[in-house]
Simulated assay, not measured.
Amino acid sequence: MSSRELQRIVVLISGSGTNLQALIDAQGTPALPNARIVLVLSNRKAAYGIARAQSANPPIPTAYLALQPYLKSHPGATRADYDVEVARIVLGAQPDLVVLAGWMHVLGERFLDALGGTVLPEGVPTPPRAIPVINLHPALPGAFDGANAIERTYEAFQCGKVESGGAMVHRVIKEVDRGEPLVVRKVEIHPGEPLEGFEERLHRTEWEIIVEGARMVLEGVHSAQGN
């Protein structure tokens, strides 16, 4: 498969980019064959994931767009307008898959409508098909939606409210962390274990399932194309 035929992935990040690194290391291997990351977009200028992308071989193009600077430079703009601009950048890379890998901003309906090809930003051509969007979330389905899921899971375990933690890759819909789970993995919490120990083991699980989820969705895209 030539470089033009490789399936194209756009990754959205906000932080250190360890999950991004797992995808970088897997692209072009049996774990994530026939795929390449064509853009990494961050909403934080200092995110180390940008450096990871730029130091990859070959280097991966990067972009930066943060909500508050965008609103300040566009008087009268709204959060929804920001989401549209994110969609414009993402669609400009012509992705087959968008992966939210530690992206700390809840994307609204206008982003999802644009990726689905129903309501496109001005000047953006209609994608040939709806672009799937997946997210990595450090909790089991329906357990701890939203932010600080790791800490909330750990605290719930200490109180005897849950028996274990976990992580999942799911499809992104308008309800936060409620999309169809694609890959789910339990991560046990050991009695007396510090939060840092649980967190480290959970992150290692995340690195595995984000690759597995991306491969699963891309295989579905490939089949839908009739190839």
Rank of each mutant, 00 (worst) to 15 (best):
G146N: 02
G192D: 10
V211N: 04
V217D: 00
I189C: 09
T78Y: 05
S16N: 14
Q158Y: 01
S3L: 15
D96R: 14
Y70F: 15
H190C: 12
N135K: 05
V98I: 12
E196G: 12
P141E: 05
L218H: 03
V162L: 07
I173Q: 03
G226D: 11
I50G: 02
I50K: 12
L136G: 05
R152G: 03
A214D: 01
T78F: 02
L182M: 12
V162G: 04
P75L: 08
P121C: 01
V162Y: 01
I173T: 11
T126W: 02
I173V: 12
F157P: 04
A156Y: 12
A87W: 00
G220Q: 14
P59N: 05
L218P: 00
R88L: 04
R88I: 08
T118D: 02
T153K: 11
E85C: 12
Q7K: 10
Q158W: 03
Q68E: 13
V176D: 03
K45S: 11
A156K: 04
P58C: 14
I24P: 02
R178N: 09
V133Q: 01
R88P: 03
E151W: 09
E5A: 14
A66D: 14
R110D: 14
E85P: 09
G76V: 01
R201A: 15
I131W: 13
T29Q: 07
R44Y: 08
N34E: 15
A47G: 08
P59F: 12
A167G: 13
V40A: 02
F144N: 03
Q54K: 15
H170W: 01
E206G: 11
G49E: 05
R185P: 02
